[in-house]
Design a protein around this nucleic acid. Sequence first.
DNA 1: TAGGTATTTAGGGAATTTCCTAAATTTGTA
DNA 2: TACAAATTTAGGAAATTCCCTAAATACCTA
Lengths: 101, 101
Amino acid sequence: MELLAIIKSLSNETRLNILKWLKDPFAHFPEEELSEYTPALGVCVSDIAKKAGMSVPTVSDYLKTMSAANILIATRKGQWTYYKRNEKSIQELAIYIKERL
Amino acid sequence: MELLAIIKSLSNETRLNILKWLKDPFAHFPEEELSEYTPALGVCVSDIAKKAGMSVPTVSDYLKTMSAANILIATRKGQWTYYKRNEKSIQELAIYIKERL
DNA sequence: TAGGTATTTAGGGAATTTCCTAAATTTGTA
DNA sequence: TACAAATTTAGGAAATTCCCTAAATACCTA
């Protein structure tokens, strides 16, 4: 648990929003983009970039930062990279703050 | 609960350390500096700056940021400003991350 | 009131972060 | 092989953060 890296990965409005959007993709992404969606994979970079209203490279880098902090999990499948939340790490973060911070 | 403001206030190694030091002042500050210490007040700016090895103005600003985010509580007493943790807010943060993030 | 201590405010150079475009890479398909 | 789609890498301008010194302010005591 690299607390500082995790906190830094969340210290940006767009990145924090991405984490929230991925909690319930059906509530936040257009249905047609989620036709391939499975909870095991998550949502692909370009769909997240569209939702964020930012360029794909920027969002790609954000997602990379967040998975480096172990808050997101990336899965490459063909030409796509899908990202989903790492629920275990998020719960560990909550417990760390509650008990140790 | 302004989550982003809270996270930003913690997204710096020194500020994160300050929060940890204040969790147990006797373990982190020289005893002679804590002769006036009470849990109700906390630790004064210059003692925290000394511990951090940074200038007083820098640390004063850090502490201001953290109390603006409601993570620390400031109490002015005479010429000193004491800072302590806002345990309620820290627990709220943990719960927010656990249940809503 | 004068002088001393603690803190805050102001100003700014250096480092980091933000987020873009262009180019390169990876993978799928004809 | 050639081309297209998705992503990543590289490079950089603009904004923000970091953290300093100098000056101003607040409060205490003689």
